[in-house]
Simulated assay, not measured.
Amino acid sequence: MKTKNLKVNQLSAGAFRNYLSYLEALDKKDVEAYGKFLSDDVEMWFNNQHFGSGKEIILKGLAEYWQSFASIEHDLTNIYGSDKNYVLEALNYYKRHDGKDATVKAVAFTDLNQNGKVESVRLYMDMTPVFK
């Protein structure tokens, strides 16, 4: 994960450290580590498509989805919002299975519940460069 291009960060130091751990689990494609951040009733959307509801369903779907590319690395550019509701703007660097690199500009809206677990994630990005 890269943070040197982070211009705006409106999270507290503690929330930022937690979010970096969350993103690190994504970059490692570590389903078990990622699942520790999710509420049992989490919802996830990719663009206009409902990816799933419920921790088990989402983790199963992500385990399958993450097999469609070799690796991912987040390059954070801006984080707006509060410690409970925030938006990340980032460049995501993918390595495809054919060895080619693909960069995707992405935005992720994240909401946490009262226990600090992710209850909603809405991702907006064009994955065409990764899958063409």
Rank of each mutant, 00 (worst) to 15 (best):
residue 1 M to V: 08
residue 4 K to D: 15
residue 5 N to I: 00
residue 7 K to D: 05
residue 10 Q to I: 03
residue 11 L to W: 04
residue 16 F to A: 06
residue 17 R to A: 14
residue 20 L to R: 03
residue 20 L to C: 05
residue 26 L to Y: 11
residue 28 K to I: 01
residue 30 D to N: 15
residue 33 A to Q: 12
residue 34 Y to T: 02
residue 35 G to V: 08
residue 36 K to C: 07
residue 36 K to Q: 15
residue 38 L to H: 00
residue 39 S to W: 08
residue 39 S to H: 12
residue 40 D to P: 03
residue 43 E to V: 12
residue 43 E to L: 02
residue 46 F to D: 07
residue 47 N to F: 10
residue 48 N to L: 11
residue 50 H to F: 14
residue 51 F to Q: 01
residue 54 G to A: 09
residue 54 G to W: 01
residue 54 G to H: 00
residue 56 E to C: 01
residue 58 I to C: 03
residue 61 G to D: 06
residue 62 L to M: 13
residue 64 E to K: 14
residue 64 E to N: 13
residue 65 Y to A: 12
residue 67 Q to S: 12
residue 69 F to T: 00
residue 72 I to T: 08
residue 74 H to I: 00
residue 76 L to W: 04
residue 76 L to V: 06
residue 79 I to M: 00
residue 81 G to N: 07
residue 86 Y to V: 10
residue 86 Y to T: 01
residue 86 Y to E: 07
residue 88 L to W: 06
residue 91 L to D: 14
residue 93 Y to L: 13
residue 95 K to C: 10
residue 95 K to S: 12
residue 97 H to P: 01
residue 99 G to L: 07
residue 99 G to M: 08
residue 99 G to P: 03
residue 100 K to Y: 03
residue 100 K to N: 13
residue 104 V to T: 02
residue 105 K to I: 10
residue 106 A to D: 05
residue 107 V to S: 11
residue 110 T to A: 06
residue 110 T to V: 15
residue 114 Q to A: 14
residue 119 E to M: 12
residue 119 E to A: 02
residue 120 S to L: 14
residue 121 V to I: 15
residue 122 R to I: 05
residue 125 M to D: 02
residue 125 M to H: 09
residue 126 D to E: 10
residue 130 V to C: 00
residue 132 K to Q: 13
